[in-house]
Structure formats: C-alpha cells, structure tokens
C-alpha cells in the first residue's frame, strides 16, 4: 500500500490526460471542419485501425504473420450484411454472431496450423484467405460475385431508444467507441498473463519451454482472441459501405494491415492507429489513383522492413541515440583536451 502511494498522483494525472485526449479525439471531425469528408475519413481510420489491431496482436506479440485475417474481416462484413438483409436483425445480434463465427473460424484455422511456424503458418493462413474468397465468389447463397447490396442502417437498441447509424456523422461515435474498446482490450492484453507469456514464447522460446509454458496453447489463444477484433471492424465496414462483396478479400486489406503495424513499429500500443491514419490520409486525401496507391502502399511496407525494421519509432530512437552519443563523445573530448591543458 505505502509503496504505491507515491505513484498515485501520477496515475491520477495520467488518467486525466488520457481522458482529455479521448475527449479531444472524439471531437476531431468537428476540429477538421465537420464536413462529411472529415467524418467519413476519421470513421474509416478508426475502423481500419481496429482491423489492423487484430493482425497487430499476432504479429507483435507472437511474432507470426497471419495472412488470413482478411477471412475474419470478411466474416464480420458478410454476417452483418446477410443477417441484417435477410433476417432484419439489429446490430447487437449481428455483432454477437460476428464474434461467435470469427472465434469458431480462428479456432479451426489455429488448430490445423498449430504445428506450423513462420512462413508455413503464413502460407496456410494465406491459402485459407484465397480459398474463402473463392467460396464467397462462387456461392450464390452468400451473394456470389455480386455480393449483397442494400444493407440497412446500423440499429443499436439501447433499452429506451435505438441508436441509428445511417450517415457518416452517426457512424463516427460507433467507430470511435469500437476503437476505444479495442485499444482498451489490447492494452489489457499486453499486461495480461497471456500477453506476457506470448511475448516470451516469441522472444525467448527456450525460456518459455523451461518454465513449462505450453507454447501451442498460447499461440492458439492469441490467434483466437485476435480474430473478433478484425471481424468487428468488418462488421462496421459493412454498415458504412451498405454493400458487402468478395472484394473484402482483396490483397489491399492484407497489405494495409501489415503496413499499418510495421510502419510505426511493433509492440507500440498506438502504433497501428497512427500507421492507419497516415496511410488512409494518403489514400483518401492525397490519392494518386488506385494503382499508384498500391505501388505506394507495397513500397512503404517493403521499404520499412528493409531500411528501418523497427519502424518509424525505431528510426526516432536511433536518431536520438546517435545524437546522445555524439553529445556524449563531444563532452569526453572536451574533458580530454581540458586535461591536456592542465598537464
């Protein structure tokens, strides 16, 4: 008790600052002029960031590259589309179904890839995405190649009234809440036993084994909890676009997820959010056209890993250390010349 006392004012201060930042962030669309473009861009950033956090959990803490997260992304979109169009159910029901189905899919995929590592794991998850795409494209019951159009506005009954997310302005609070929820979840995960064990399995497998950690269980658990994050982003995406089709499997989303995670740096809580923001702003506001955007996105992904494997934060760190070292050696040299003068 006494130990934690001195920290208390600090953590109070922290909480106040975080709350203030969240408050400011919520009014960002207004701060950027309150136009429909501002709302839709920020909504897109929020929901794409959530999509990326699913991959982030696996890549940053397990060290594996899942190329199958577009499957979960599409599960969210398809569940929201098909259930609200054909069954007319509200957003809570589709969200629950999204979570359930994505967890089931991740469990299946996680179990069959349990013994695979590195690029084999990636290739199998990649294959899963290609195959799910083929099925979605050919199976008319889920819309086939045309997909599903006319998805009704997102309705979330809250007891005494129903929140309707029809416009971009109305969807923003939901995207924002989903993002906060995700950040909270990932922050908790990082400090949880599962999170720290996963990092140990990734960074020091020998130590993990010697401590009796069941690595497969940890890998499976992390993979499974990452799925509903990306899936819920897909769920909201369906309501935002009012259309869902096999284009949800496009490589774009996959490359986007990976780039957003590695751009700022792995294992940084706000990294994927900032990465997504930079990329979406480029694509929405400084776009050079779809094909050029592909070239840019792919190039950024490759260049970051080749030149700054630790991402932009790593670059900043590197610069700071160089600067520190330089000032330090300068100091030493000064001292030496001073000594020489004395002699």
């Amino acid at each position: 008790m006494t130990d934690s006392l001195p920290h208390r004012p600090l953590s109070m201060l922290r909480a106040v600052v975080v709350a203030a930042l969240i408050g400011v962030a919520f009014f960002l669309p207004q701060l950027f002029g309150g136009s429909s473009v501002a709302y839709s861009t920020l909504t897109t950033i929020a929901l794409f960031a959530v999509m990326c956090y699913g991959v982030d959990v696996v890549l940053s803490y397990l060290g594996e590259v899942s190329l199958g997260h577009t499957v979960f992304w599409a599960i969210g979109g398809y569940v929201a589309a098909l259930m609200s169009v054909h069954l007319g159910v509200n957003g809570w029901v589709t969200a629950l179904a999204t979570i359930g189905l994505s967890v089931a899919a991740a469990t299946f995929l996680g179990l069959v890839t349990l013994r695979t590592r590195e690029f084999v794991f990636s290739l199998v998850t990649y294959a899963a995405a290609v195959v799910t795409h083929e099925i979605a494209f050919n199976w008319d019951a889920v819309g086939g190649s045309d997909g599903t159009v006319g998805i009704p506005a997102l309705k979330l009954p809250l007891g005494f009234f129903t929140y309707v997310g029809g416009t971009q302005e109305e969807l923003w609070p939901i995207a924002f809440a989903l993002l906060l929820l995700t950040l909270f979840f990932v922050a908790r995960f990082r400090r949880s036993r599962l999170g720290t064990t996963a990092l140990m399995v990734h960074m020091n497998p020998a130590l993990a084994t010697s401590l009796g950690v069941d690595q497969r269980r940890v890998r499976l658990a992390v993979f499974v909890i990452s799925a509903p994050i990306t899936a819920l982003a897909g769920w909201l995406y369906a309501y935002q676009r009012a259309y869902v089709g096999p284009d949800m499997f496009e490589a774009y989303f996959l490359v986007m997820m990976l780039t957003a995670v590695v751009l700022v740096g792995r294992r940084i809580l706000l990294g994927p959010l900032l990465g997504t923001a930079v990329l979406i702003i480029q694509q929405n506001l400084l776009s050079l056209g779809g094909d050029w955007n592909k070239v840019i996105l792919g190039f950024v992904l490759a260049a970051v890993l080749i030149f700054w494997p630790a991402g932009l934060m790593g670059l900043v760190d590197h610069m700071r250390q160089r600067w520190l070292r330089k000032t330090r050696t300068n100091g030493r040299e000064n001292k030496r010349s001073y000594m020489e003068e004395v002699q």
């Binding site: 060290g63 594996e64 590259v65 190329l67 590195e118 690029f119 990636s122 490589a251 996959l254 490359v255 990976l258 780039t259 590695v262 779809g290 094909d291 050029w292 955007n293 592909k294 070239v295 996105l297 792919g298 190039f299 950024v300 992904l301 490759a302 890993l305 080749i306 494997p309």
Partner: peptide, 17 residues
C-alpha cells in the same frame, strides 16, 4: 518472416505497377 512481408509488399507494388 521479414523476407516474406517484404516480398508480399513488392508483389503488391508489381500488381499496381
């Protein structure tokens, strides 16, 4: 792992290009 992501990114560049 990095090679895989890098080549994936380059593949995307080739597709766009």
């Amino acid at each position: 792992t990095s090679l895989m992501i890098v080549t994936l990114g380059l593949g995307y560049v080739i597709q766009g290009g």
